[in-house]
Write a protein that binds this DNA or RNA. Structure first.
Lengths: 213, 213
DNA sequence: TCTCGAAACCTACGTCGTAGGTTTCACTGA
DNA sequence: TCAGTGAAACCTACGACGTAGGTTTCGAGA
């Protein structure tokens, strides 16, 4: 690998690093990601990265931020009913998870306090309050929703070494109930399945609102 | 560190290794866990562990299995209504997560196909079918439930370097809705909160059943 | 032209997972 | 009683990792 002379610019900056880092994790997975590999990918000495990012942990932060920014904001003109906002956000979040299945575990593990994440939450919460939902429900709902989204998408996108494990066979003697349902789990990870489950969660939230007489 | 002579037994076996490994992760966290550290903890040469466990990945499997086995089975004599089964299982799962917050991320990341996990699922599924819930609901419900459990508990137990991040301050100008709800998030991670959210999820599932006329 | 900071590179250290080889013990059957 | 044997431990060594600390070079401002 031909290296640059010592003082010449390599044109590094956070943006270029972020893009390369995400691509590297997408390709090789989190396990194989590291400072040295990223540097080689960029044609650069490992230590040069430290002028732009503090270290490996900070690199992971950069990656998760970059990927989270892909979750599209709900368009301003769209209807403001809270269920619509929740559905749109959830699907956009899911799309991102499927685009970057090997990055996704990183998001789930860190507390999300970036402006993008907070803005999405704020839109959901204010839509719920505008619809007259009690504060307790508006407070619980996003945690239930994102709890479900994170857990479920983690399972669907595999998050292990590589892709999601196929649904196992069930011994009908030991597990009669699961064997009977096995065929229903064939489309594991489909949009239809996701939307159905999302519906269950949203139903649960809607049910918390006091019934209008 | 005084080492044993070369041929003498160190009394190693999978059980002893599992116990020490779980304790080590509980104490130092997943990041710091490694073959060499575990060996030192056991007063043993690192390579000796390879006679009982294939390598680091297999060690992590051993850890997650040991911890999952702590989730108590729902007692046989207990009522068989599916909501009771679900609630008990969920709470027992939560207790385990809080007992081993630093191990928990390991569980979420791997597909759970151990007998313990399958047995718990089977109990839930068969209780739902016995109650007359449609197969589609019985198939979706466990995925929604464990999706929520995994995602939510991951957030609550912190799963990062150490404990859960405290709830951040919200700028009332940028995020009016969330600022208004901030006080409701004070008891983040409490049993009461967990039980409330669990109730929301179970409500959603119950709502899928066809209404008895 | 001289200076100086930014940005790159280089060296080196301690740690990691683990392949491959060596040593010793307990148990066997003759 | 004693060589033979296999299990279980230990030892050595290698390549890859994250990163502290130091050195070199370029280009912009004085």
């Amino acid at each position: 690998m031909a290296r640059r002379a010592r003082g010449t610019s390599a044109g590094l900056d956070r943006e270029r690093i972020a893009v390369a880092a995400v691509a590297l994790v997408d390709r090789d997975g989190l396990e194989r990601f590291g400072v040295r590999r990223l540097a080689e990918e960029l044609g650069v000495d490992p230590m040069s990265l430290y002028h732009h990012v503090k270290g490996k942990a900070a690199l992971l932060d950069v990656i998760s931020e970059a990927v989270l920014a892909e979750v599209v904001a709900v368009p301003e003109g769209a209807p403001h009913d809270w269920e619509g906002v929740a559905r749109r956000t959830a699907h956009s979040y899911r799309d991102m998870a499927y685009r970057h299945p090997r990055v996704f575990p990183l998001l789930v593990t860190r507390a999300q306090t970036s402006p993008v994440a907070l803005a999405a939450l704020e839109r959901l919460v204010s839509a719920m309050r505008a619809a007259g939902l009690p504060d307790r429900v508006a407070a619980d709902a996003p945690m239930v929703l994102f709890g479900f989204l994170n857990g479920h998408l983690l399972a669907c996108t595999g998050s292990g070494p590589e892709g999601p494990a196929p649904v196992p066979e069930f011994d009908p003697d030991a597990y009669p109930g699961m064997a009977a349902l096995a065929s229903r789990w064939a489309g594991f990870g489909s949009v239809a399945e996701f939307d159905r489950m999302l519906g269950i969660v949203l139903d649960g939230i809607r049910g918390q609102a006091p019934r209008p007489a």
